[in-house]
Design a protein around this nucleic acid. Structure first.
Lengths: 335, 335
DNA sequence: AGGCGTACCGAAAAGGTTTTCCGGAACGTA
DNA sequence: TACGTTCCGGAAAACCTTTTCGGTACGCCT
């Protein structure tokens, strides 16, 4: 418990060699005889030696750590990204410092300072909402902005292709023979809401279709809004045969009201959501088709880009990650 | 970008003092004249100096880091705990390494080794489900088990008071005049399911009440089970006036079927959930009363205990954190 | 026998900081 | 003037590892 960790010096002594050779033996350097290497390895094993990473970092000028600076840990977006990143780095070489700024600028600065003090090799910044956020500016380590892009085009950002996602959703509905497609979505001030709508409208236009319900129903990202909007929508246009919801939460509200109105899903009305938030989508009645933003992949990609940037040089601009269609039972071919 | 960080040596040179005095000045040591300290501080400011934490850790034998070893990052339980811990440590002194073992034992060992190599000052282990898990055994740093207790009573574990939670839920229903209370819950192999049922039954017994529906309805933690169980329950006993659901997911299923059966919530049947999983509970129709496990507080507590243990000595045994009632509209006094 | 190349190992510096201990200056006192 | 105090500042060791460079031993060639 209170015993100090064993050092290389002790391993060396037990193996009867110098510290230098012990180090070389353990790191697979060639200038050491096989028999000697064996002795060292056995000694290390016996003492359960594990090298002090701090000391290693001090001399190699590489700490083997990265900072993950998120703004909403409770949010459902940071987590998959975080997992993807953690996954890509692996525990072998790199460990991840997790910092949640809680959307507070001061706290973010604080965390940033702490991370730089710890000499992280790089930084991934995950925004809370998919709109551009202020750049951290010039830093001594490479930075990747994930989910929320940086305002500064000189930074490297990785974001979801929301336009493509909207297009994908509508395309799916069209392929299943739906013609009267409505779109209920969240807060109009979110770029994501705008982009998804843009993609949806573009795909409709290609097919020569109009949006059902006369408009895009912007509101907020809640189930309650999904319910309210659906009621208004049905009043305006009872003939719809599909709804594209801007989030799975909204889709749940849509489903709820459709049930109340005795409209069967999917035979009469198809519903597709967005986010593939499993707990909502998979447990819906019927299980909800939806668009997955591939956030883990985004996280993995961020880690890979960062890894490549460490030592090398970082790109710039915004890279988008495509969405993926998840087909469940809430959408089906007509007839 | 590629410029190496400034060191204490450079600060000292700029201030015209030795490295030793620079260090003392920055750390508030008394043996330095105020004017000298000022010079150093200004120099540090000017160079934007931030001390190399690796070097500090090397000499002080304290890295200022802790490891957070979780088994299900995607799960909803680790996250609040993680937030609480992150919160309690603050960014000032301590940073958190996040490691997700994905429920894999080998990966856990791997991560553990890496963390020890980084000379973390302590460890918090967050289990995936609230049943006892294997101990990590004797380690050179203090370890706290959160959410899932360690099998070894010599370890210190912090868990939710599920019995108290079950009691709390039923107590709330009773106080609101409900008499025919049923309990639908998840997987019977989960200690949490057993404990919540135990607490619920105990409170009923105190009141001289029987459980409605003849049994505790164990199944799994899904919305679908909530629906299925409710149908069976209504067939068995149509006269119930309250349902205590073992999770918010299940509660959502219960609500769904009650709506189908034209039973009004809460006037005819009250429903209370468990977890206070906001997205499910707050957006339900009507918003769901539920039991909150105070997981952030559990996380904060874990951090505090760990903090106290670092340097000092760690306690042992299992400490429980009480639950908290969240009242929304799905429960209301009868009449 | 002398010279040379190869294979192996160790001494020592380096990385950036903290901390102990000591020396010098300034000052007051006898 | 001699001496004791107090106050500041610096030299150097320590933390643990990696890496460079030099040295030894040995076999081989001429």
């Amino acid at each position: 418990m209170t015993t100090r960790p064993v050092t290389l010096r002790e391993v060396a002594k037990l193996a009867g060699v110098s510290i230098a050779t012990a180090s070389k033996a353990l790191n697979g350097q060639p200038q050491v005889r096989a028999s000697t290497r064996d002795r060292v390895l056995r000694a290390a094993e016996q003492l359960n030696f594990s090298p002090n990473t701090l000391a290693q970092g001090l001399i190699t000028q590489r700490s083997g750590t990265v900072g993950l600076l998120t703004s909403d840990l409770e949010g459902r977006f940071s987590i998959p990204i975080l997992m993807g990143a953690e996954d890509a780095f692996g525990s072998d070489q790199t460990s991840v410092f997790l910092c949640d700024a809680r959307g507070d600028n001061v706290r973010e600065k604080h965390h940033l300072r702490a991370l730089l003090s710890r000499r992280v090799d790089g930084l991934i910044v995950v925004g809370a909402r998919p709109d551009a956020r202020p750049s951290l500016g010039e830093l001594p380590v490479p930075v990747i902005y994930a989910y929320a892009p940086s305002e500064d085009p000189a930074d490297l950002s990785l974001v979801t292709d929301n336009i493509g996602g909207g297009r994908l959703a509508v395309d799916h509905l069209i392929r299943h023979g739906r013609r009267r497609i409505a779109h209920i979505t969240g807060d109009a001030t979110y770029g994501a809401a705008q982009d998804r709508a843009t993609g949806a409208l573009a795909r409709l236009a290609e097919e020569g279709l109009e949006l059902a319900g006369d408009q895009v129903w912007f509101g907020n990202w809640s189930e309650a809004w999904g319910r309210g909007a659906t009621r208004m929508l049905l009043q305006r246009d009872p003939e719809i045969d599909a709804v594209f919801a801007g989030s799975d939460e909204i889709a749940r509200g849509v489903l709820d009201v459709l049930h109340q109105e005795k409209l069967d899903v999917p035979s009469q009305v198809a519903v597709i959501g967005f986010d593939n938030w499993n707990i909502l989508a998979a447990n819906a009645r019927p299980p909800l088709s939806t668009i997955d933003m591939n956030l883990e992949q985004l996280g993995r990609l961020a880690a890979q880009r960062l890894f490549a940037a460490i030592g090398g040089t970082l790109g710039s601009g915004t890279e988008t990650v495509p969405c993926r269609l998840i087909t469940r039972e809430s959408t089906a071919p007509v007839g």
